[in-house]
């Protein structure tokens, strides 16, 4: 790897961080309302017909557009629905909005509010891969051990996108497990001996271990 190449990469990473910093500062300046609070521009979006009859739970007596200073909504206590992860920090209107009764959507699970970017291919239990704080998937190699292709050797330290062409757009399936599907260029470059000339174009695992690709390990 050349020095010029390393310098370019460093420049790009620094530019990326600088750009992010500027963007984050820009959005931080946006007038964000208090969490779990309310401001006049927001609503009310919801009808109040299912709210408690005790108005003073939320409102001051000076005006219905003022909420009490200590207004805090304990979602679990008031509704029986516990908020977890990033949902505890989400603004009320992300779920309670013009779309309709939130209960109808939450009953559908994650897909009631979140796009299913995997297009119905990975099931409905998002939490088997994602955690609710940052939605970042964790532990994919352990999960891969429950497939017909457990990740062994260098496959465990290979970027997902090298085999799953659509990984960055959420599309992982179907994926072929035959070696040649991902290692076509390696096969074409294997000239000592010439694998293609010898007809060695399948069952690479008879001679190659997944710890290395460019030489066969035998006794």
């Amino acid at each position: 790897m050349s020095t010029r190449f390393r310098r370019n990469r460093l420049s790009v990473v620094l530019a990326l961080l600088l750009g992010y910093g500027l963007l984050a500062c820009a959005v931080s300046g946006h007038p964000t309302p208090r969490l779990h609070s309310w401001w006049q521009g927001l609503g009310p979006v919801l009808p109040h017909d299912s709210f408690p009859a005790e108005c003073s739970l939320c409102h001051t007596g000076d005006g219905w557009r003022e909420l009490t200073e200590d207004f805090e909504f304990d979602h679990e206590e008031r509704t029986g629905v516990r908020l977890e992860g990033a949902h505890t920090r989400a603004r009320c209107l992300r779920c309670h909005n013009d779309r309709g009764p939130a209960a109808v959507f939450t009953r559908q699970g994650c897909a009631g509010c979140h796009e299913d970017v995997h297009q119905g291919q990975l099931g409905t239990d998002c939490r088997s891969c994602h955690q609710q704080e940052t939605w970042r998937p964790e532990g994919q190699i352990e999960r891969h051990q429950r497939t017909r292709f457990p990740l062994v050797g260098t496959h465990a330290v290979t970027s997902c996108r090298r085999c799953h062409l659509g990984a960055e757009t959420g599309k992982f399936l179907p994926t072929d497990v035959e070696c040649v599907t991902c290692h076509r260029d390696d096969l074409a470059g294997a000239k000592n001996p010439d694998h293609i000339a010898l007809g060695w174009i399948e069952r690479c695992d008879r001679c190659h271990m997944p710890t290395t690709w460019h030489q066969a390990e035998t006794n």
Binding site: L16, Y20, G41, L42, G43, V45
Partner: peptide, 21 residues
């Protein structure tokens, strides 16, 4: 009277989302 909801025409725009690196 029942509390009337504010229709979109009566509400201000809102910006939400995330930025990440």
């Amino acid at each position: 009277a029942r509390v009337d909801t504010l229709r979109p025409a009566q509400r201000e725009p809102t910006l939400s989302g995330r930025v990440y690196v």
